[in-house]
Structures are given as structure tokens and as C-alpha cells.
Write a protein that binds this DNA or RNA. Structure first.
Ligand SMILES: [Mn+2]
Ligand SMILES: [Mn+2]
Ligand SMILES: [Mn+2]
Ligand SMILES: [Mn+2]
Lengths: 218, 218
DNA sequence: ATAAAGTTTTAGGTTTGTCTAAATTTAAAT
DNA sequence: ATTTAAATTTAGACAAACCTAAAACTTTAT
């Protein structure tokens, strides 16, 4: 498997959110920042290798082999992200680009030992689940903060947008995974939220609220 | 810089042992396990980028930029080898191939932090020196065990052959870096050595003796 | 000094992954 | 039901990194 092939499989998995949907050529091209014609070429090759189901003009889906390869790459990506944060003191907004490179390192032993060193983490620094060796992971029942109602209370468990920009914004405002969030009020006018985060009052825009995942506790 | 370009620079550095000698096309081809014609192509490209001095039929040498790039890759390779042994419990015969991949990861911050995590090691698991950020490293005054005379005594500080085969042989015979070695006798007949290693008697063939580096203490 | 042998380069070709432009198929709009 | 628009595929091209075979250069041996 080449780096490029791996990146395509990962892209298909992410667009389809792990399901078996038919993914369009254009969607893949956008995700990969490449041209649709390049995608078509690659889909033919991946189809030849039995990693995707491809029928002309009908989009693609991952085969079970393709899916497990995608999961293996995602596992590596997220484990490396944990390593960078936990062992090398990277901040959560700096890890993605390096992990994009590290995810392609081929060595089963390496990743097993890394998993052990990190004490078998279940989530990456952005709250995304880390598949185990067999590709299994728990899907935690989380909601976007923007979907909560007044008086709902929960724990901040993830981010939808994991751009450096957004993560730095959260840092600056001292919002972190694990924080307890309570919805005090919702403003109809602009969709903004009045929150209590770890006992401090906060007001966040609807844009922020729709990029934070919360696990409701009551 | 592509992986391939990096590997060529490293190969040239290794063949020339860090000096500024003119390296032949065939020597590079052999080191890289590729064909001379491929080497010529690459030398033209590296020359274009001012990483090597190249004149047709006259061989190549690294420019100062090329040399510092080679040293940077070697630094990364050896730091990763230390990481694999110290933090992930790899044995010294398993690290090279993985380090060949990891050495190409691009992130200055990553390598600085890794260096710190490992507490700024000066040598890799095979006794090879690790260049610092500026490409400087100490050349330790070591000799091949085969060059020692009877009654010479020293510390085992490195291996010349770092093949898995040889390293496993040393493991099996409980010979490790840091061991104290004394030459008790040399056998003219087959060039074999009678040694005392950490107080135990040993007999090693000339082939072994010419692949172990020793720092003489008396 | 010349021939033979060895080394290096050139010429032309392949594969991978990309691109643009044109053709084809599917979906949407009238 | 056509026409128009959008999505997708094909055709042809290109750069990177490799190859084989042939030509050119250098070194060695006679
Ligand atoms: Mn990431
Ligand atoms: Mn992540
Ligand atoms: Mn090595
Ligand atoms: Mn080494």
C-alpha cells in the first residue's frame, strides 16, 4: 500500500463516517484536495485490489478489507497524536500534521508497543475514539452543544472542527475536554449560548456551540 | 526533499565516511541497491539543487548544504533508534528498518522533543554517534578488536556490521556495548582471538573481531 | 600506444500519481 | 420530454524515480 492509497481509504472512511454509504467522486476529490479525474484513476486501482466497491458513475464504498485498512491507519494516526501530546508535550492543535506523516509508518510491532507505552488509550486528544487492533471502538453517545436545551448539563468530550484555529480559541478561553458544561440560556436572536463551564459563566456563539461535542449527564 | 533524495544524500555521506571525497556512481548504486543509470539521474537533480558537486565521469561530493541535510537525517535515524530501544523495548537488531522509515518524518519540533525525551543521547544503540542540532558530534577514538594486540584492554563501544544476524549472535554470546574486553591471545593459524569479556573467557573468530569496535583503556 | 576492460552517461521506456480538456453519463429544470 | 446543468469518466500529458540497452569516456593491461 502506498501513502496515497492509504490516504484515499482514510478519506472514504471519513466521508462515509464509517458506514457503508456510496461515496461520490467529487466528495473524495474535495477531501483529498485533488481533481475528480485523479480520484477516478485511484478508485480503479483500489477496486482492482478489492479495497473498494466501484461501479462507474455510481460512487464507491469500502470493502471489508478496505475498511479494516482505513481503521488501521486511523488507529495509527490517533495513537501518534496521543504520543505527541502525552510524551512530547505537543499541544492538541499541533499534532495533526505530524500524525498525518507518522500514520504511514509500517510496523505492527511499533504500533503495538506504542499502544502499550501510552497505556492503551481509548480516545485521541480531540476526543475521537482509537480503534483497537481489530478495528473495534466504542461510539460514545455524544451531542453537539448546539443541540442541547436550557438546563441540560454534560461533559465536554470532543470537537467537531479540529482546526488549529478553533483549538487555540478553546485554549484561550480555557475550555478543555473533560470540562463540565451547563446550558444556562439560549439566545434566540443570534443562537448564542449562555453557559456555565466549571462553575464559570461563559457566552459562546452558535458557531462555537456547533463544533463542541458534549456527553449529557442529566 | 523527497525520501529518495534524502536516501541518496545519506548514502553519499556514509560511503565517504563524512569526508569530502569524490564518490563514484557505482559505489552509490551498490549502497542504494539501484542501477548506475538511476544514480546519474539523481546526481543531476541533486546537483541542480546544490546538494552535491557533480562533474560528469568525475564522481560527486556533498556540498555543505548537502552534508548538513545528510547529518540531519542521520540524527533523526539514530534518535529514533534510541527511542525504539529505550522507550518501546525493541532490541538493537530490530530498530534499523523502522528507523529507515521514521528518519523521513518532517518536523523539527518533533525531533527536538524526542531528543529531550531521550535526555539528549550521544550514541545510538549500535554505538554510532548522534549529531546534535547543528550537525556536530564527537568522534570517539575506537579501534576494531581485530587491530588490538595481546594484553590490550578496552571497552566495547560499537559494531561495524550492524546486521540483525551479527547483533543476534552477540546477544546470544552475551556480548554487549559497555563490556570490558581484554585480549588474552591471538591465534596465528586462523586469526581467532582468545578474550576475557567481563571476567569470562571467550574465543571469537577473526570475522567477529573485525566487526567489533573497542575503545582502548590501557 | 593501442586494445581491452571497466565505469559512467545517454536514450528511450515503465509505473505511479497527478493534471487539463474533452467526452460521456446522470440529475435537474423547464 | 427536452433541454440544461452537474458529475463523472476518458484521453492524453507530465514529473519522479526507476529500468535496460547502447554509446561514450576512463583506466588498465599489454
Ligand atoms: Mn488528526
Ligand atoms: Mn485527532
Ligand atoms: Mn540504523
Ligand atoms: Mn544505528
Amino acid at each position: 500500500m502506498t501513502h496515497s492509497e492509504e490516504n484515499y481509504l482514510k478519506a472514504i472512511f471519513h466521508i462515509g463516517k464509517g458506514g457503508a454509504n456510496e461515496i461520490s467522486t467529487n466528495a473524495i476529490a474535495e477531501q483529498m484536495e485533488t481533481k475528480p479525474s485523479s480520484v477516478t484513476d485511484m478508485m480503479k486501482k483500489l477496486s482492482e485490489k478489492n479495497l473498494v466497491n466501484y461501479k462507474k458513475y455510481k460512487g464507491v464504498s469500502l470493502t471489508s478489507i478496505g475498511k479494516s485498512m482505513a481503521l488501521s491507519i486511523i488507529r495509527k494516526h490517533r495513537l501518534w497524536e496521543v504520543f505527541l501530546v502525552e510524551k512530547l508535550d505537543f499541544s492538541w492543535d499541533e499534532v495533526h500534521d505530524v500524525a498525518e506523516q507518522l500514520e504511514h509508518i509500517e510496523s505492527e510491532k511499533l504500533i503495538d508497543k506504542l499502544d502499550k507505552l501510552l497505556d492503551y488509550p481509548k480516545y485521541d486528544p480531540h476526543g475521537d475514539p482509537i480503534p483497537d487492533k481489530n478495528g473495534n471502538f466504542k461510539v460514545i453517545d455524544k451531542k453537539l452543544l448546539s443541540e442541547l436545551s436550557v438546563n441540560d448539563k454534560g461533559i465536554c468530550v470532543g470537537v467537531k472542527d479540529s482546526s488549529s484555529q478553533f483549538l487555540k480559541f478553546l485554549d484561550k478561553n480555557k475550555i478543555a475536554l473533560g470540562d463540565i458544561i451547563e446550558v444556562i440560556d439560549k439566545e434566540d436572536f443570534d443562537g448564542s449560548f449562555q453557559l456555565k463551564i466549571n462553575a464559570n459563566s461563559f457566552n459562546v456563539s452558535s458557531q462555537i456551540a456547533s463544533n463542541l461535542y458534549v456527553q449529557i449527564t442529566e
